[in-house]
Design a protein around this nucleic acid. Structure first.
Lengths: 328, 328
DNA sequence: CTGAAAGCGCTTACAG
DNA sequence: CTGAAAGCGCTTACAG
């Protein structure tokens, strides 16, 4: 049902004018007599005419799609979806929308689509850069690319300072006079993990006094509950620094069960964490999303001539995770 | 930098063939000599040529954009963003991507864009239908529309059965022999709230025996912590049924503070809730996203001739929120 | 203020 | 297997 095919020609005919005039009305060109404009407008509205985006794009590509591609790597990572919201709100202010691509292994196809559809820019989540071919493609078409989490000298990126975050946690443990701490990470070490743990270790080394650190890496996605139970059995353990809040959640439960006094610290401050009173490092997804939105818009506006490299400062959130909430 | 303007013509020229032949290669048309195909392919690759999506669309609209619009209402609602993930994964299986529009007040503009860009379908989140004009527009262009949360006889929709969920909670309270219960909802009553509370009330009425129910509606977005403190001061109170988990979180904290024994029940089972041991009704966002993805793809495949109306069954998750976790 | 014409980059019959 | 031509629905100078 419905003519899929009302075109500008039909509108022109019904209004008894030329194509150009209708087009002018469509584009708010002032050089149209008011009475003509109104007549055309009413016909457009009567027939619910919507001009073909494809044709418009084809003819004046400068007006590239007002939308930005977002490449989200494989499944997982709650954090990415938290970013989405503020990112989207930011883009909306300039009437851009977001086009989401799940990239499992092959970013190639997604980047191709970004190019083919003439998107205005692309944001890449995760700690891996695009492949050489993909970068080449974007460059040739002058489509700006912004990394979130990955970084290198030549790219546009924005991310939180993981190294500083790690240092802050070390600082905290030192202030508590702990001497025995475990770093619990993922087996498949990411850029983030490397930086966080490096920051931690560097700070501890500076301290000079003896400090026993063990690092344990478990398979990605594995539940930390059981391991945490075992670790917390050691009453001499000062605390555990989990690579992420998600990993820490199992620890929170184990601690509760065992009435342990160890200090658990996560990383990310995702939504649930405040309710679990988890001490953690906040990387406000709200800030990140907002800044990412602004950055990509700036890149687009500057026609990809600026370079954007922002490092945001994370913030240690000390909660009562080490306190007496569950015992007494 | 980079020629934005390598076209099929350039490729044809460099390969010494006609446009048609390049086009055939692009479209995997078998009627091309292998040697020719390979030559063209290598030139395409050498120049990183990507055909213009706009031109292709214009010329054969059947191949509508392989993407689906998602209209997300105003800010808020964590739940929507949880749906996103599984929805996206589902669409990806058929090489569709998702285009996200934040609609504050005006869905009009978003729908226009959906039409203008020739998206294959649209999913509308939230409990309000599109306006008449928007529905008309979609119908004229034969673009299928699927509601999540809203429903009416004539539309395609998918949602969880809120009425049944409300009943289940009533059932649970009855089994606990409670006689005094508060329903805590939002002032700006949604379809969901109406159905949940109606299910609850209906079930209680059937019970016959005296049951004291008060319903309190607070301004949307208001923190429930203080109110919960007050309510839980009443030691005769059996429990509180919060319209949503998010609302219940304040209650969980108040209960903890006051060492209350009241039973708190939320609704949604969003990610944090399991960690708070909140009893709640699960509406698996994973299931909903997946089913929504399947449904919209089916609508697209059937050329919008099927009608899809799915009601999913929620599930009561009894956790220890009423138990002795925090006391002893 | 307005119309007719050229052209955007592709695909699709139509001939060969 | 391949080329030349028409046409998709618009915008943009160019004349009037």
């Amino acid at each position: 049902m419905g003519d899929q095919n009302i075109t500008i020609k039909d509108i022109a005919q019904k209004a008894g004018v030329g194509l150009g005039t209708v087009s002018r009305v469509l584009n708010n060109n002032p050089h149209v007599k008011d009475s003509t404009r109104e007549r055309i407008l009413s016909i457009i509205s009567e027939f619910s005419y919507v001009p073909s985006g494809a044709a418009r794009m084809l003819v004046s590509p400068r007006r590239s799609q007002k939308s930005v591609g977002l490449l989200i790597p494989r499944m997982g990572n709650q954090y990415f979806y938290e970013i989405l919201k503020s990112l989207n709100e930011q883009l909306k202010k300039e009437y851009y929308s977001l086009m989401i691509f799940n990239t499992e292994e092959e970013q190639g196809e997604s980047v191709r689509q970004v190019v083919e559809q003439g998107l205005a820019g692309v944001i890449v989540l995760g700690d891996e850069p695009l492949g050489a071919r993909e970068q080449e493609l974007l460059k040739m078409h002058n489509i700006p690319c912004l990394y979130i989490d990955y970084y290198d000298e030549d790219s546009n990126y924005i991310h939180f300072d993981n190294y500083a975050g790690g240092r802050t946690i070390a600082e905290y443990f030192i202030s508590l006079h702990y001497r025995k701490v475990i770093l619990l990470g993922e087996r498949d070490v990411s850029l983030q993990q490397r930086d966080r743990f490096k920051g931690f270790n560097d700070r501890v080394k500076e301290e000079g006094s003896p400090f026993l650190i063990s690092e344990i890496d478990i398979p990605n996605g594995e539940d930390t509950l059981n391991l945490s139970r075992t670790l917390l059995g050691d009453r001499k353990l000062g605390g555990i620094f989990y690579f992420s809040d998600e990993m820490a959640f199992g620890g929170v439960q184990a601690k509760k069960e065992l009435h342990s006094h160890a200090t658990l610290v996560g990383y990310d401050d995702i939504f649930p964490s405040r309710f679990l009173n988890l001490t953690t490092v906040r990387q406000s997804s709200e800030t990140l999303g907002r800044e990412a939105g602004r950055s990509i818009l700036e890149l687009i506006r500057s026609n990809n001539e600026n370079k954007i490299q922002k490092v945001l400062e994370p913030e240690l959130i000390i909660r009562e995770s080490s306190e007496s909430l569950y015992e007494q």
